[in-house]
């Protein structure tokens, strides 16, 4: 069949589960709300650009943009707290609490990640082998904690700007200026990381180009797991748990939808980054 469009389908099967249903639903909520927020928010940051006008008129004017922005903010807080709730539930349920926080399945940064970073840079310099990652590598953890930090900082400053009268009872008015600065630059950081670094790490780097739909279908081929998460594969094989994770291949429809939506999201993200770069070239960093 030759090379598959989605890199999560590379090589031979069987398929292995990587992401659970709730994780995929939450990620879909992240995608939808994040695009909504970026499309309706960035035009304010670059309001002097002609594309900003076009974009804001496309969504129905600045009041409609503000409405969409707030709806997406609610979705953001929604997935954030669903995740916190789900996490709490899983912590309570887990029998091995230490392993939950300090094991290969944990998102918590561990000494292993620092070694991985060091080894990766050695590999870049041609002075070592390609590092072998377990279930979550340090780039996955960057995305995860970046989301935590981003939602807290952007969400918090956004709430201050959403309810200024309420917050003026506890904060001086100039905190709205500070909130505007924090909200804008942190949003730009999030946009910049997600639409360039995240896109590169999970979709665009040569091994994964053009798209990896494991986060949509939840599963990837055994060959994918061997290359991208070799330590996890070895660990599961050693522990004899690989069989538990064998998944049926995604349906044809689910696969095609995943690839299509993935490519659309990628293109849209890159387009938005292009617009931001255009604005920065023209207006400089303010």
């Amino acid at each position: 069949m030759g090379r598959k469009l989605a890199s999560s389908d590379r090589g031979a099967g069987p398929y292995i589960w990587r992401f659970s249903g709730i994780e995929r639903v939450l990620h879909a909520m992240v995608i939808v709300s994040f695009f909504g927020l970026v499309i309706t928010g960035t035009p304010l940051l670059y309001s002097h650009m002609p594309w900003a006008r076009t974009l804001i008129r496309m969504v129905g004017g600045f009041q409609a943009a503000g409405f969409i922005h707030r709806i997406c903010a609610v979705i953001t807080f929604g997935y954030f707290f669903i995740h916190i709730g789900h996490l709490t539930y899983r912590i309570a349920k887990s029998t091995n609490k230490k392993r939950f926080f300090w094991g290969p399945d944990s998102m918590v940064g561990q000494p292993r990640d620092l070694q991985d970073i060091r080894d990766t840079f050695k590999w870049f310099a041609g002075k070592g082998p390609r590092p072998q990652f377990d279930r979550f590598n340090y780039m996955d953890k960057l995305d995860y904690w970046g989301e935590f930090w981003g939602v807290t900082v952007i969400g918090g400053s956004g709430l201050v700007l959403w309810f200024p009268v309420f917050f003026s009872k506890v904060l001086p008015g100039w905190m709205f200026n500070v909130a505007t600065i924090i909200h804008g630059i942190e949003a730009l950081l999030a946009t910049g990381i997600i639409f360039t670094i995240h896109f590169f790490n999970v979709n665009l780097r040569p091994e994964k180009f053009p798209v990896d739909v494991v986060m949509f279908t939840g599963r990837a081929t055994l060959d994918y797991m061997k290359e991208e998460h070799p330590l996890q594969y070895e660990r599961l094989s050693r522990e004899g748990r690989l069989g538990e994770l064998i998944a049926p291949p995604p349906s044809r429809a689910a696969y095609l939808w995943s690839v299509t939506l993935g490519l659309i999201a990628l293109s849209l993200g890159i387009l938005l980054i292009g617009l931001i770069i255009w604005a920065l070239i023209q207006g400089g960093w303010r």
């Binding site: 590999w123 870049f124 041609g126 990381i193 360039t196 670094i197 780097r205 040569p206």
Partner: peptide, 18 residues
């Protein structure tokens, strides 16, 4: 913003080259 993006931007660039 600049430091985070620069670090991971270089990271991606080096990765691509390697």
């Amino acid at each position: 913003l600049v430091s985070v993006w620069t670090f991971f931007g270089l990271h991606s660039l080096f990765w691509l080259i390697r």
